[in-house]
Nucleic acid binder design. Structure first.
Lengths: 201, 201, 201, 201
DNA sequence: GATGAATGAGAATTCATTCAT
DNA sequence: AATGAATGAATTCTCATTCAT
């Protein structure tokens, strides 16, 4: 943790400043892209000097990782909170999707940027894989609790994960005019049920 | 088209050289990332001088776009060729997925890189949307030919498209150790059939 | 002296603190080099805040100068104390050399660093020249007391000074494996006597 | 040699440019000090862009090392050429000193700067030690040829080396007004003879 | 048409110094 | 008096692009 260069802010004021840098910096990186966001941009947007950034972070990359963790938590926490046993599974699924959409909005454009960095940056790669793992496995254990057990549940859970994720993207960015997001949501719910019911036979 | 700077090569030799730059450059960008690939890298890998690149392309970005078009075609052509009426739909689906996996291998890491650029670069964004549109719509018309007709077929086709895409990624990169790619393929086929059969009732 | 910015500490506590900064700072600068020693390094090593340094010193350079004066005195005082009339000149010379070696150890690497700064920094330059002057002249007056008088005694004294200095360096740092420091000391003593005896004829 | 970043100029024009950078850069570093000389300064003084510097050198330090080698040769070559058997040893000595003075003028202020860097920079350190070794050993073999043989000749040679060096400095910079350089030269010659004659007994 | 040396704007990072607390 | 967080000018180094040959 300690590297002799960066320091952990102790005072409330400084902690806020550090968080401000993470939030503003990460947001900027997600909006403009990692490469196109300069440390000067981040400093300006966060209302601090360039120097202070290097008191709290080793480099630009470090800010990105910090942002990743912060927003990763913001995404997972409410989602996991939703995965409680429920009488109406369909209803629960609909709710989970809504939660995920909200969570994804936090990341915004970041998702693509993060996935691109995944390819070249081992630290980002590790984080995003971990995120997918945790989510998939949490989903599996939830399904187990719901009484759904089968060999390939991990695979099914992952397919569901990807399907919900692309649904989120479509809903958030509405990239394709000819697609109706609400219809998609309904189809996804149907499909998820189909994926899981297959095994209930 | 003409901008007074770049020129369209007329001679066979020059056309080959231009294509070499596109292929080598695009491949490099996909492997190392757009930003981390320098024009010097591209020139060296393509066996040309840095200067000549600017005879054929306006800038680095232009090479990427050209690569996108070239490989877009390489991806779509064989895929579309496969979508011919068939007695065994399940068999056809399996074949399509295999073709797509092959097609995705061509892009390799590019996919993520391209999607990241999508966020900031309108030209890339337009291209990738166009690609998704063409694919989705072609899939829809194929399904229509197969006798599958319904209101939300576009949405269903898009969901299928995304599901197949993430399957491709998992198979190519095998990011998650705990997932069995072949099982995933089977589930995807099943699920696609489920998505489409719902409407056959 | 007063510049409206720095102040002369009155309290015992403050005087100690100022001296601590000079000693620690100067030592650090001599070990790591002037440029590579940051004010943060000095503050940390001296156990004070970076801010307080600027209460006692105008800038980093000022600390170096202060260190120079402090250690200059530490070097000269014992050396001069040794230069007392003696029956055995050779014995006295040997003792002087030992004293000088001790004195040089205090400076350590500083010597080179100081001499380098001499070239660009007038204040350092003036100080080091003054040091050499005082030493040379003190040596001359000592020699005079010993009955050695001649026109070019200043020049001879300076040559002796340089010879002893490079002997000190060799003994302290032992840069050249193939040189025997003790042999060198003997040769230097012999040579010094030779330099001076010439004039005794 | 090859590091994939810097390249060795092939064309006459480029070789001249590279040498210009070394000479101008090294001179500047010697005049203003290593740290105070920026790459921008060097580029400006050499009449080139900052970028081209990094085509030929890895960094600023690399330029310094290159300068060291270049001027090291300029110093040693004429000196070694002078060390030929001679009837009049005193005359030869006087000539050697003159040659060394000329050689040292090339380095100018560099000497002190180099010696300071010696303390912190292993590469500079290695170079300067090598230079001293080569010179000392060459002097010893010359003395052997002249018929001077004794156990501690290396030590004597090194003392002579240092004595001549400080003489050079005094003559070039004339730091101490009260010293007469010509008198010093005479004393040095006398002393050198004394150092060597001791062994002729 | 082709080359690759040269350019220089731009980015990350450092650190002496200041200043709010 | 003392602190140490904050500043921002200054510096090194990179690389897309140009241009003399």
């Amino acid at each position: 943790m300690e590297n002799g260069k960066t320091r952990e802010p102790q005072q409330k004021r400084s902690i806020e400043k550090k968080n401000k840098i993470i939030e503003t910096g990460f947001t900027l990186m997600c909006e403009k892209g990692y490469q196109k966001t300069t440390t000067a941009d981040i400093a300006k947007a966060a209302g601090v000097s360039t120097g202070i950034i290097y008191s709290y972070f080793q480099d630009k990359h470090d800010i990105f990782i910090a942002g990743l963790r912060l927003f990763g938590d913001k995404l997972l926490t409410p989602m996991f909170a939703t995965l409680t046993p429920s009488v109406d599974f369909r209803e629960a699924l609909s709710h989970i999707i809504d939660i995920l959409i909200e969570g994804h909005k936090v990341f915004g454009n970041a998702h693509k940027e993060i996935e691109a960095l995944t390819m070249t940056d081992p630290e980002v790669s590790a984080f995003i894989l971990e995120l997918e793992d945790v989510t998939t496995k949490r989903l599996v254990s939830f399904l187990n609790e719901e009484g759904i057990v089968c060999d390939d549940l991990l695979e099914r859970a992952h397919i569901i994960y990807n399907m919900v994720e692309s649904l989120c993207h479509e809903i958030i960015f509405h990239n394709h005019e000819y697609l109706d997001a609400h219809r998609m949501k309904d189809i996804v719910i149907e499909t998820v049920l189909a994926i899981l019911q297959v095994k209930e036979k």
